[in-house]
Every structure is written in C-alpha cells, then in structure tokens.
Design a protein around this nucleic acid. Structure first.
Lengths: 239, 239
DNA sequence: CGCCGCATTGACGTTCGTCAAGTCTAGTGG
DNA sequence: CCACTAGACTTGACGAACGTCAATGCGGCG
C-alpha cells in the first residue's frame, strides 16, 4: 500500500533462516538488524565486486543469482561458484582486504550490504552470530572441497549430473520444485565451473536427454529421473 | 639443558608468526597462550582426524607435514591439500560439528590442539585474534579458488609446475631453500591433488627434467629454472 | 640379500577439446 | 505482425592429451 523505503531489517526478511543464525533473543535480533547497512540492487550482468577492489563488506543475496569467478593475468578464467538467495558472498576479500574474484549478477538481484567491521563488532557481543560467521566460512570451505573432488576425479557426465542435483537441491531448500529448473547461466559458464568446454556440456545434456533422465529445452531443465543422475555421479564408470 | 615438559605457549613458539596474529600486547599474548590445550605428536602415517569424527578443535602444525583428503562412499578419493608447519587444519569441521575429511601425517609431526570453543571465547576479547581467525578461513577459501582454477583450466604440466612453485615458495617462507625440495608425498598423492594419474605426474617430472628445468631423484627435487616453470604455468599452450 | 613399495617408461585406447557447420530463440526494428 | 539478427546452443568429424595396462627399474629396510 504505502510506498516503502523498505525498512532494512533481517528480523522480517524472508530469507532470514538461510543467512542468519536461528534462536536469537529479541535483543540479539535487534543487534543483528544493525548489520545491514543498506540494500543494493544489482542489474543482470553488473558486477557486485571485482578482483582487486577494496574489501569492506560481505553481501547477503536477497533475490537473484550470481556467479563468482577468478581470473589470471594470462587470461585464464574459472567460475568458482553460483550463488542464490540467502547465500553470503565476498568471504574471499577478508584475508587481504581486497576481493580476489569477480561477482556478477546472472539476473536482476538485490543484496544486503554487511560492513565487515560491524560484523566483527557485533560478533563479539552476540555469540550466536560469531559462531554463525564461522560456520558460513567453514561451509564454503567444505563446498569447495566438494568442487575439488568433482574437478579432480569425475568425468564430464558425472560432473554435470552432480551439478544439476546440487542446483535442484538448493532450489528445493528455497521452496522451488525439485524437478523443474531454469538455468541462469550459459553452457559456457557451466563448463567453466565444471572444468569442461561448452560443447562437452551440451553433449552431456543431450546424452541425459536421450537416456530419458532429463528434458532439456535451452535453459529449462526438467529432471525426470533424479535417481538415475545419482547413479551417474556414483558410477565410477571404470573400476 | 633441563629436561622439558615443554611449556605449551605460543608466545615463544618458533612458528608463531605463521599461525598467530602479530602486534599483540603483553596481556593479549598471555590470553592467546591459553588457546593451546596441549600438544600432540602424530606419527608418520597416523590420522590426526578422520571424516565423521566429532569436531572440537583446530590444530596448528608445529612440525611435520600433512595431507587432507575427502572420500566418497563410492570410493572416490581426493587430496584437498598439503599442510606444513605454521598452518591450521580442521576448519572443515566447524560447520557441522564434525570433520568432513581425513588429515594424515606424511612425516612424524607435532600439532598444537586448539579447542574451538576456547578460540571463540578468547576471540571475543582479543580483536586481533578474532580478525586473525577470519583471515585464516578466508585464506583457505582463496587457496581453494586457486586449486579450482588449476583443476579446471590447466593441463598436466602446468598443474605440476604450479604445484612445485607453490611448495617451494611456502618452504622458502619457512626459511628453507627455494631451489631444493624433498617431497613428502608419493606421485599418487600428488596426482590425486592435481587431478591426474601418477603416471602422468611421473611423465611431467621427466619432461621438466629433460628440459633442464629440474633435477628429480625420487622425492628429491632440485629446481634449476623457476622462471621456466613459471612460463609453463602461464603458457596457455593452446590459445 | 631379497623383498616390497614406489617410480619410470612404453604401447595403446578413451575421453574430451577443437574446429566448423548449422539450428534455435529472443529481441529489435520496420 | 513479421523479418532479421546476434548470441546461445547443438551436432559432427577429427586429433591431442591423458588414462590404462603392463613391464621394468630402483632404493630402503628387515
């Protein structure tokens, strides 16, 4: 009804349970609300932060979809992750006070800006927040272990199957279908993340499609046989 | 001189500047000393912690050399890192209160046991420690980005060159030679870390040797042309 | 001295990258 | 409303890089 200079507050945010600790007392909750300095819209294709930029804040994704990627001087490029609502990005910037990767919106998005010094300050008073921050960073480390496993020991189809299952599982945790999926990234970006070429991604999609495990229509993916995909991931085709 | 039930203290530890924050006041330093619950020797081949074990502590490596690896139920296996003196391991355990990988000593080692609840407690009082913990976790995230880049976009020889340069650079930071290297891991473990087979590792070593960039004798590696290796890493052989 | 695990090397096969041609779709402008 | 275009995607043919399998060499330890 009334126009809203949307009150910035975690306490009534719909992705709260994804990015904030649970079981806070009322007063703790109001302290945590102070974390969010502002909200910031990010247009599709725009960068939220870029390699080399000064680090000041973490970002909690309220809506939208991002990719993060690292680049080397010699032009190598690697997507290190895809992030969706409720996830925190920018953790890479803490260690040297500057970001070491680019974060780019793959669809129109909105993020909460969380100044890191404020996070540290409030963490000292609210134990649950302190532990939550540690868990978020640990979770990212564990996730990356999984990616290393995927890149280091899986073949193309196994990688894509694992990727699709992971995506759909995260969507499901956000209340979306566990069989219907709209990819926000190109084949090339998927390939970069999975360490393979876009043609190989495309072929793997076609293969799954032939085998009746998914229906693929451009970026629309319908997963008809999640169990089949799981078998692919765990197949260890040889040995 | 006198026999030592070695006093457990960071303040006079020789790898302090590697694992502890710098610029602490005297009283802060004494608080930080309380972090170390005990020291624990780990024999070569022994596991410091294992996937599934309850997480209680981080470990700071005083001496020795470790590998960490993740395993899947279907028997896939991936070395996620090699850790040496001054580095902290166990961060993966925070998120779910249990370890998600195995840590195995590749040579006789000694670690400091840092109970994590004590870390959190003292972090609240000593800001420098709080920030240091954040930096350590962020550093690990950034390191893993680098591994993802390596696994996702480099060819075999580029990976091995990058690996050798990274190892020697870390050894140098610890006061060792920047050209002389004793590998503590097998070809197979190197291969697992780099996402390639042990034979491919061996062939890459032989290639470097033929090209006069290194001398290899089993696990002894002499780096004769670090610049050459750097060129390999940045070569982008095709394109 | 002999064994065993690790490492090297060679021959061959598979997977995936490369290059190229062609198709589909969404978006734009007449 | 339709035609046109650019970018994304698919598919095929071929080759390079790496994995696989197997034989052999080497060094350390009991």
């Amino acid at each position: 009804m009334n126009n809203e200079t949307i009150k910035v507050a975690c306490s009534n945010c719909n992705v709260r349970e994804l990015c904030m600790p649970i079981g806070l007392t009322i007063e703790e909750l109001s302290r945590v609300d102070e974390l969010v300095a502002m909200r910031r819209p990010v247009k599709r294709g725009a960068t939220l932060f870029r390699n080399g930029e000064k680090f000041t804040s973490l970002f909690a994704i309220r809506t939208g979809f991002f990719k993060t990627c690292v680049t080397t001087e010699d032009g190598r490029d690697q997507v290190t992750g895809f992030q969706m609502a409720g996830e925190i990005i920018g953790l890479d910037g803490i260690v040297n006070d500057q970001h070491t990767c680019d974060a780019i919106a793959l669809e129109d998005a909105e993020v909460c800006v969380l100044p890191f010094d404020r996070i540290e300050e409030i963490s000292r008073e609210v134990n649950a927040l302190q532990h939550h921050v540690h868990k978020i960073m640990s979770r990212e480390i564990v996730r990356e272990h999984g990616v290393m496993l995927l890149l280091g020991s899986m073949r193309a189809e196994e990688r894509l199957a694992a990727f699709l299952l992971n995506l759909v599982q995260r969507m499901q945790a956000r209340g979306f279908s566990k069989s219907e999926l709209v990819l926000r990234m190109t084949r090339e970006e998927i390939g970069s993340y999975l360490g393979m070429k876009l043609e190989t991604v495309s072929r793997a999609f076609s293969k799954f499609s032939e085998d009746g495990m998914v229906e693929v229509k451009q970026r629309h993916v319908h997963i008809k046989d999640a169990e089949g995909l799981k078998r692919i991931v765990n197949s260890q085709l040889c040995h």
